[in-house]
């Protein structure tokens, strides 16, 4: 190892997300205020669905009581199985397909959605055992699901989403609106 001058700072290098992923956002999901989702798209087109840092679950010192991947009587995301390179058998999701319902300790319930079209590869089972991951590391270990868009749709699926910059604008407008009496 040579030619490297490590800096003594915590943020000397871009993170794994910065290196390999592009952040996309969907704000006020299904018209519900601040229920923002963040989609991390890998350069290989794969998408990781996460909670945006502005999501109500992550605000005001909330705690998660339970996470339920059983989205209806007949369908549980936990029973999703994919096999082979072509990921046969994975559930195919559209933008508004629910992934799970999260109940906070204050009994508020939130639904997390796919936000993009694609084949469900896996949901994060670690957050069932350790729900605090969702709060502590929402962008990495607290991810919700991994979705593989169709090859031909790998570019178009993010067209309806906001870029990081657009998202920041939306968030700052929100702040301004809140501070102004209506």
């Amino acid at each position: 190892m040579d030619g490297l001058e490590p800096k003594d700072t915590a943020d000397s290098a871009p993170s794994v997300i910065d290196r390999y992923f592009t952040r996309w956002y969907r704000t006020d999901m299904k018209g519900k205020q601040c229920e923002d989702h963040c989609i991390l798209q890998h350069s290989n087109r794969l998408c990781v669905v996460t909670l945006a840092e502005t999501h109500p679950i992550l605000q005001n010192g909330r705690a998660v009581k339970s996470i339920n991947y059983q989205i209806s009587n007949g369908c549980s995301r936990l029973s999703n199985k994919v096999s082979g390179k072509s990921k046969r058998g994975g559930q195919f999701l559209t933008d508004f397909a629910p992934l799970c319902r999260i109940t906070c300790t204050d009994e508020t319930e939130y639904t997390i959605y796919s936000c993009i079209r694609g084949r469900l590869l896996e949901v994060n089972e670690n957050i069932l055992e350790t729900p605090s991951l969702l709060l502590e590391k929402p962008a990495t270990e607290g991810y919700v699901a991994v979705i593989l868009p169709k090859f031909e749709e790998s570019k178009s699926i993010t067209e309806n989403l906001l870029s990081r910059e657009q998202f920041e604008q939306v968030v700052s407008k929100r702040g301004a609106a809140e501070s102004q009496p209506s």
Partner: peptide, 13 residues
């Protein structure tokens, strides 16, 4: 090790 996200698009999970 679960198949890394980096290669999951072309390898089986």
């Amino acid at each position: 090790q679960k198949t890394p996200l980096r290669v999951l698009h072309r390898r089986a999970l």
